[in-house]
Amino acid sequence: MDQMKVTYEVMLGLAAEMIWDEALRKHRSEQIYSEIDSALAKGDEEAFRALTEELKALEDLKECR
Rank of each mutant, 00 (worst) to 15 (best):
R25I: 04
E45I: 12
E53P: 01
Y33H: 13
V10S: 03
E35F: 01
A50N: 08
A57H: 14
A50W: 00
E46G: 07
L40H: 09
A50V: 10
I19W: 02
E17I: 10
D2L: 13
L24E: 13
E53I: 08
E53G: 06
M11P: 00
L12W: 03
K62D: 04
I36H: 02
K56S: 13
G13F: 05
V6F: 09
A23E: 12
M1K: 04
S34Y: 02
A15I: 13
L40G: 08
E22Q: 12
D37I: 09
C64Q: 14
A16F: 03
L58A: 00
K5P: 01
A23Q: 04
V6E: 07
M4G: 00
R49C: 05
A15M: 11
H27V: 06
A47H: 04
V6N: 05
R25Y: 01
V10I: 15
R28V: 06
W20E: 06
A41Y: 07
Q3K: 14
H27P: 01
D37K: 06
D21G: 01
I32T: 00
D44Q: 07
E46I: 15
E45M: 14
T7L: 14
K62V: 12
E59Y: 05
L14S: 00
L55G: 03
G13H: 01
T52F: 06
Y8D: 08
I19R: 08
E17G: 04
D2H: 04
E54Q: 08
D44L: 04
K62G: 10
A16V: 02
E53H: 10
I32E: 00
A50L: 07
K56L: 14
D37M: 12
E53C: 06
E59A: 12
Q3V: 11
E63Q: 13
E63L: 09
E9Q: 07
